[in-house]
Design a protein around this nucleic acid. Structure first.
Lengths: 252, 252
DNA sequence: ACAGAGAACTGGTCAGACCAGTTTTTCCAA
DNA sequence: TTGGAAAAACTGGTCTGACCAGTTCTCTGT
């Protein structure tokens, strides 16, 4: 088999195994060519294959990016059907949380079983960042923590479904942070839940991890429902800015 | 748009419009490059894109040939990248089943709680169709049954996620039908599981419904794993029909 | 007439150059 | 000190020409 094809498969595997999340930038052609010890031509050919398959998108002068695998609720923009649905129908927030509950639970379960030491390291890092950060500007670290867990599940379908819901996730996570964190007792509970989840995964206790994740999401959901019923305004739409995360491409 | 992409699209249209028949050789890279007045590089990149899309096959020293294509009879030929991943990396079947387990479980749970009489009617109809149809003939009734349940969950996010995975779902359902149904004892179990799920939902027993759905998917997954470990061939893809023939290339 | 050696194709890889967008840095002027 | 424009340093896109590695055709010597 041609080198370019081998490389395209290697990259594809890497991407779909969750090593690279949708929207993330992949190294430049010149970097890849030196790192993999092949000419830039074969890199370009490999990338064009991936492009043909729709795995990546390439933008002149910017780079190549992992494409989102599932019809994504159009980023930044207004016309997304789901977004629209969301605005007109606030209950969607809870619908999303329902789905999250399942998927995060599954991810936690699998992560506890399958996390490599590298995965655990990443999760730990995200967890520490979460602990150290000012909780009010907390949406990002919170999301990163969950994201790290999902990737440790090593289930590409799970990874991509969840990351295609990323924007909405950020919204709900943000909602949780803004609405719940200021209330001291709730913040304590959330931190405790995160810690439980974290410990369970690192200890490899799959069932405990799943339970913790499900409980966490459900707690958030219930807490917000309660807030809403008490008549408090629930903040839903954060001013969000999509900042690309750092890339970890160690395993090329 | 890049020249290589324009060319790849031109060639693809030419091929798909019948200008070039499957198996037919397309001009050599050097010929194309002089005929189209571009460098060989961009020709190669265009061809690699087509290769990625599965439109052509290339053989060292021989040339590039139109692949025996799969004009996918009627269905929405949603060639998603995940689909391709699926072809290249069979383990994805189980990844998808893992996700299905969660989502179907959730859908069943919610359906049991929320199904209106109309929903129940639809589910019943799908269930009867499932019972009456020759299970070997088609994955459709099976899939429709599950689909009806998902819609009865009244969770738009859940519906959205599952329908974006529709084609892959069909694959797993199909795999289950083709591989498992012929084995009498398994077929019996599957029918029993469907009935359990059906009854639980109609009775509004949410937990029982969830349990039944999860058990069902997990059973399918395990059964297929077992089959595979016994060395039996596990059929993953629906049989694809071969394409019509045509001849001649004109306008390059 | 035929077998075999080249010649003449095919795609695969490499190197280096240059163009064209984008981002970052630098540095001067307000 | 700070804004902002110019310059440098990236990114991908294209071109050229060379050589390697398979395949097919041709021509030649027996």
């Amino acid at each position: 088999m041609a080198i370019s094809q081998e490389i395209s498969y290697r990259l594809e595997r890497l991407i779909l195994d969750g090593g690279l999340a949708p929207g993330q930038k992949i190294p430049s052609e010149r970097q890849l060519s030196t790192r993999l010890g092949v000419s830039r031509s074969v890199i370009r050919e490999a990338l064009h294959e991936l492009q043909g398959r729709g795995v990546i998108e390439t933008r002149h002068g910017k780079g190549s990016f992992v494409a989102s695998m599932v019809p994504e609720p159009e980023e930044l923009n207004e016309q997304s059907p789901l977004m629209h649905l969301y605005e007109g129908h606030p209950r969607t927030l809870y619908d999303l949380l329902e789905v999250r509950e399942q998927l995060e639970g599954q991810a936690a379960y699998l992560a506890a079983q399958r996390a490599t030491s590298l995965d655990k390291h990443r999760i730990s890092k995200a967890f520490r960042a979460l602990e150290e950060t000012d909780p009010l500007s907390n949406a990002r670290p919170d999301h990163n923590f969950h994201q790290a867990i999902v990737e440790a599940s090593h289930n590409p379908v799970l990874v991509h479904v969840l990351s295609s819901l990323k924007n909405m996730m950020l919204m709900t996570v943000h909602a949780s942070v803004v609405n719940l964190n200021p209330r001291q007792e709730m913040r304590g509970q959330i931190i405790r839940q995160h810690k439980q989840l974290y410990n369970a995964i690192l200890a490899g206790k799959a069932n405990a991890a799943q339970k913790a994740a499900v409980a966490h999401v459900r707690f958030v959901s219930n807490a917000m429902k309660k807030l809403e019923m008490e008549g408090r305004e629930v903040i839903r739409m954060p001013a969000m800015k999509t900042s690309p995360d750092q890339q970890h491409l160690t395993s090329l």
